[in-house]
Structure formats: C-alpha cells, structure tokens
Nucleic acid binder design. Structure first.
Lengths: 209, 209
DNA sequence: AAGTTATCACCCAAAATGGGGGATTTTGGA
DNA sequence: TCCAAAATCCCCCATTTTGGGTGATAACTT
C-alpha cells in the first residue's frame, strides 16, 4: 500500500512548482497528480485529484494562507496528509500550521533527496520536519526546571488551571480550604500576581507547570 | 565545533551498552567517554566526564527511572543534551520524557546507522525522533476540526481557560456580562458540563480549543 | 539555628457563579 | 427567500468564591 501515493502541489512560485513536480515524477513510488498556484484553484479539483499527500506552500500570495488552507482541507478531508513547505521557521507560524492539521513542516532549502526522504518518512507513519522545526516542537514540551514553586504549589496551580475553586482544590488534595488558600497566596506572591488568571498565564508562559 | 562531541551512556543492559559503545567509537566525530548501569552510578562522575550528550535508557531497573534521571540531570546541567532510548513508545511516557527535558527520543530498534544519524541530527540543532514519536508529537498539536463550538464560544472558552471571570471576558471581547454568561451557558449545554473547570477539561481533552 | 514547606484557622466585603426565564438582530446556507 | 444558528442583551435569585489581612504549628533541610 505504500506504492504510488498521489501527490498534489500547492505553491505559487512557478519555478518551485515545476521543480517539485520533476522531483516527484523521478520516483516510482510517488505519483504526481497536479500542481496549483493557490488553494482556491486547487480545492475544486480535490475530489477528482484524490491526493494522498498535499505539499502546501505556507506563504501563498493570492487567496487564503497556507494555514487557512490546511485547516479547510483537513476539515473537508481528514485523510489527506498535508506537508507544509516554508522559507520561514518562526515558532508561531510553525505551531499554527501544526494546530491547523499539518502532518509535517519542511523548509524550502530542501533539496531533491530531502524532499523524497520527507515523503518516505510520512508514508512510514512519521512526521517530516526540518531540524529546527523538530527542535522547536520538542522545546515546546520542555518544562522549566527552575520553577520557584514547590511541588505542592504546582499541584495547586494545575488545579487552578482546570478552573477549580478553593473548595474543590482542597477536596481533591485532601487538605482544608484554608490550606489551599494559603498555597494560592504564596503562589501569587512568588509569581507577583494577584489573581488565578494571571497566575496561570505567568506560570504557563514561563513553563513553571 | 561539531567535532569530538563527548558521549556518556546510561543503560542497564550490558550487551546494549557495549553495542552503543562500539558504534560511537567507530565514528571519529564522537568521543565515547563512559557508560553506566544507572543514574546513581553515572551522576557522581558527570563533572569529570563532562558529556555533551547523554544517551539514556528510559526503563532503568535499578534506582531512579530515566524520566527522573533526565529531570535531575537537566536541572543540574542544562547544557547536556539527553536522548532517551526506549523499547516503548507509549504516548504518555514519551511526553513525560520530553517535558522532563529530553532533546530526543529514539527506539531501541535503531541500528548502527540510525544511532549515528540521530546524534548527527542532534548536533545539527535538531531533535532526533523515531517516526512514531515524531507523529505522536505532531498529532499532539492538532486541534479537532469538528468542534461543536462556534468561533465566538471558542473565544470565550479560551478566556475561561485563562481563569477570566464573566466580567473580564465581557470586557475583553467588548460585549456585556450577560452575553458572556449566555455564551458560557451554551458552552455548558454543548459540552454537557456545568462548571468552568469541567468545560476546560472536556474541551482540551477533545482538542476543541 | 534559620529557612522553607505544608498544614490549618478566623476575619471581612465585594465579586463571581450557576440556574431560571425571555428577547432581538445578524448571518449563512439550503 | 426563508430558516436555523449564532451573537447579542436583559432580569431574577441564592450560594459560593475571591483576595486580602494576621496568625499559628509541625516537619524537613541546610
């Protein structure tokens, strides 16, 4: 079933479009179906093209952005795998693309062999990413080991993040309501905030929890 | 600066330990420093070994687990890169390892070439991951396109997740307090919950926001 | 001996909550 | 063009929560 995966390209640069097309046509196990300048031109033909994989430029000049493109495409056809191709690897752009449903994110510097390797990686059940993107994604998981908060305070903060009240936190941690209040007061003073909302925002942005 | 990266191995299986050692010694650009059976034996020698990279088994039978090991190691020496080696790729284990500070996660099926490629990837500024791990990490970013919530309700829910009150939500979205209350009532009915905490838990676990 | 952490108590007034009822206007698809 | 969904707003109610203050005790680490 790994044979003849159908590939569609959405890329507004003519030269790149042709380049990708040649690369894909050079490999037996991939079948180049069509290439388009933007999402608006591509989407009406999706039912006919039936791609397994779409290579999508993230910075499309005309029409919707690549982010909106993948969001729309995945909502209509969740089984199509979308790999974003971009010159930028700005963290928020990458994360937005992934949230929107992209299964991979590679940079345009990718040469012949890297593009094919990315497709192979995807077909193998992986998620092709350029080095920097992989590192960004992993770093996004890292929690801050230098949190000023004690373990118990982190417990309390996690429950605050779930919207729990003083009483609910107390019940869940088997402590009295007064104790949960004390913990929260101490959290506020350490994080220099004075409400639950601010505490969560500060703690999450600094990866304290 | 990519030359002679110092490698330390923490792995309780003798055969595997020797195997990794041979592989690393076979490549000029890596310098095998030492191998240990567990974290307790390794950590006293870290200041002497001065590794750039630690290959750590996640399932250590004696002493602390690999997760606790990487957490401790990174808290003491954040500049050491840790790559987890595991037979399992259970989602929660992977995510725990990454949260704890691992810079990569590869499976034990990795052969000679894959282990060296992983180290190369790490040195290049990337994050070595086996295919399944990469996919799990990426899938963790995907939001659910079939959310029953309207865009406005998602806006409100995001603010609830930040711990905001009815009034604060109203102010931030330039609507009246009554409107934010109505939105929240509708969110509760759609998610079949009846408190802010439950709403956040349900929506996040189903990736509605 | 000093510091941190975790636990608990009592005071207060203001704000927030969840649940009930009803209403209008705008918007997007069939 | 019509209808349903979405977004906006208003009133009522009793109960709970909140943030702030001051204080204490025990355990544990350094």
């Amino acid at each position: 079933m790994n044979f003849h995966k159908r590939i569609v390209i959405i890329e507004d640069d003519y030269e790149l479009r042709e380049c990708y097309k040649l690369i894909i046509k050079s490999v037996d196990r991939y079948h180049f179906v069509n290439s388009y300048e933007n999402c608006e031109q591509a989407f009406p033909f999706l039912n006919k093209d039936k791609p397994d994989i779409v290579l999508m430029d993230i910075n499309l000049f005309s029409g919707m952005s690549g982010i909106d493109g993948v969001k729309y495409l995945k909502s209509k056809n969740p089984y199509i795998e979308v790999v974003m191709i971009s010159v930028h690897d700005d963290a928020e752009l990458v994360f937005d693309a992934l949230r929107a449903g992209a299964s991979g994110y590679i940079t345009k510097s990718s040469n012949y062999i890297e593009l094919i390797q990315s497709l192979d990686e995807l077909v193998k059940g992986g998620a092709p990413m350029s080095s920097k993107v992989a590192r960004m994604v992993i770093n996004n998981f890292h929690s801050n080991p230098n949190s000023p908060l004690s373990e118990r305070e982190k417990d309390v903060l996690r429950l605050i993040a779930e919207g729990k009240s003083y009483t609910q936190i107390a019940d869940q941690l088997f402590i009295s309501k007064e104790t949960s209040k004390t913990h929260i007061k101490n959290i506020y003073s350490k994080l220099e905030v004075n409400s639950k909302a601010e505490a969560i925002e500060t703690a999450k942005s600094k990866k304290y929890i």
